[in-house]
Structures are given as structure tokens and as C-alpha cells.
């Protein structure tokens, strides 16, 4: 889908957020960008989204050009919903910005809300929903355009552990079902090990890619009690320790 070739990004403040990052993204991948704060993982995600431009290197899309608006979904750490709009109106937003009427968009809205388990909450306002439900709305908003690429920037970091576990399991199932490519930024080794098929380890100052690991776990089922999961977590921890030194 995308080749990221020797990409660098330096902010006007002088911080070198990313140096010589190269990565290949295949269609249907589930890639975790894992690393501590300041390792450039969010910067890399923004570059993929086209929200920022690299100073050096290039993003080479297999299709020859970046995806159309709507082919990329983006989910932030905060739900960042419009507080004055209902759940359904928030999910409608991406389609509305692409010129669809509410009637035209209705089936897609209902489907996206159903997919995140929020059928029946169409008319709830964000403040009436729990943090986990708000994040579900946010994910539904990211999915409503049926994107081929879903970018997620620590979407579960602010949630309690039980909610996070449920949403992580739901996300794995959704991705398997939709077949979209997911790039998932996280600073949690456990989360990366559970979710991703490929784990990209990143280190800070300057932000760079240290190494890549492949998950041996069978995807699409709850592997948290699998001994192989514990082994993977330990392997990633060790690799991360080594990379940070």
C-alpha cells in the first residue's frame, strides 16, 4: 500500500521529531508503532495521514497518489467529538464534509454505530456517554467512510483497563472483518503485543525506527492468556530495552 522511504521531519522549534524512518505498509496490515514519548510515532502517523509533510525522504503510495479524503480514517487519543452534536451527527460528520445528505448517509451511520455496539445511542450527546462509549463513537466516525487505512493515535490510552481490553478485542475483530489496514500508535508493550501483527519499535531523540518484530500469535481471538502472548511481551520488552540503550 505504502512505502515510507528515509523520511525525516524537523519542527521549526529545532526538534528532530523523525530521522531516516523507512517502513513498508501492506494492505491488510495491522502495524503498531511502539515507543516512549518523543520517539516520533505520532509524527509518523501524521505524515501518513497527510496532515504534515516530511522535510526529507518520501511517502510512495502504490496507487501513485495519496488516498482520497475519506479513504483514511483517523482516531485520536481523545474522542474529540463535537460536544453539541449527537452520536449519530458526530459519526455523520466525515460524510457530511464529503457532501452527503443525512438521508444518504443514514445507512452508513447506522452500520458504523452498530459495528462499535452503540445501536440505540444515536441521539445521545457526548457528555451523556462514558469515556469508553465516547471512544466508540470516535471509532465509528473513523470507520463510517469505510476507509482502506485506519490511523489510530493512542486511542485507548485514557481509558480504564477493563474498557481498554474490551475495545482492543473489538478492534481486532473489526479489522479482521473489514480487512482495512491499521496503523496503531501506542506506548504500551502489552497493547502492541495483543493488537498488532507487526510491531515497529521506535526510540526518541531523535525519533527513529529501531527495529521491527512480527507477532507469532494467531490473530482474531483473545490471546491474553496464551503463553505465547507472555513470551512476545517479554521479547518486545527486551528488544525495547536494548534499543533504548
Amino acid at each position: 500500500m505504502l512505502t515510507i522511504a528515509h523520511v525525516g521531519r524537523r519542527f521549526p522549534t529545532g526538534t528532530e521529531a523523525l530521522r531516516d524512518a523507512s517502513l513498508r505498509l501492506e494492505t491488510g496490515d495491522f502495524v503498531a508503532l511502539l515507543g516512549p514519548s518523543g520517539c516520533g510515532k505520532s509524527t509518523l502517523l501524521r505524515l501518513i495521514a497527510g496532515l504534515d509533510r516530511p522535510d526529507s525522504g518520501a511517502l510512495i503510495w502504490d496507487a501513485g497518489q495519496p488516498p482520497d479524503p475519506g479513504d483514511t480514517g483517523y482516531v485520536f487519543q481523545d474522542a474529540t467529538l463535537l460536544p453539541w452534536a449527537t452520536a449519530a451527527e458526530n459519526v455523520f460528520l466525515p460524510l457530511r464534509l464529503r457532501g452527503l445528505s443525512r438521508d444518504q448517509a443514514q445507512p452508513a451511520i447506522a452500520e458504523a454505530l452498530a459495528r462499535v455496539g452503540l445501536t440505540g445511542f444515536e441521539n445521545a450527546r457526548p457528555r451523556q456517554l462514558s469515556g469508553g462509549m465516547r471512544m466508540r463513537v470516535s471509532i465509528a466516525r473513523g470507520l463510517v467512510t469505510k476507509p482502506r487505512l485506519l490511523l489510530m493515535d493512542e486511542p485507548f490510552a485514557a481509558l480504564d483497563e477493563f474498557t481498554r481490553h474490551r475495545l482492543q478485542a473489538d478492534l481486532v475483530a473489526m479489522q479482521a472483518d473489514l480487512g482495512c489496514t491499521v496503523v496503531f500508535v501506542t506506548h504500551s508493550i502489552y497493547e502492541a503485543a495483543f493488537l498488532a501483527r507487526r510491531i515497529v519499535l521506535m526510540t526518541p531523540r531523535p525519533g527513529r525506527i529501531a527495529r521491527e518484530m512480527t507477532s507469532p500469535l494467531t490473530h482474531g481471538q483473545d490471546t491474553r492468556l496464551d503463553p505465547a502472548y507472555a513470551t512476545l511481551v517479554a521479547a518486545i520488552s527486551q528488544a525495547m530495552e536494548a534499543a533504548l540503550q
Partner: peptide, 12 residues
């Protein structure tokens, strides 16, 4: 918040 502006930008 800047994230919402990003979102609007992302969807063109």
C-alpha cells in the same frame, strides 16, 4: 482543539 481541525482537514 487542534485534533478536530486536523479531522476537518483530513476530510478535505
Amino acid at each position: 482543539p487542534p485534533e478536530l481541525r486536523d479531522l476537518f482537514q483530513l476530510y478535505g
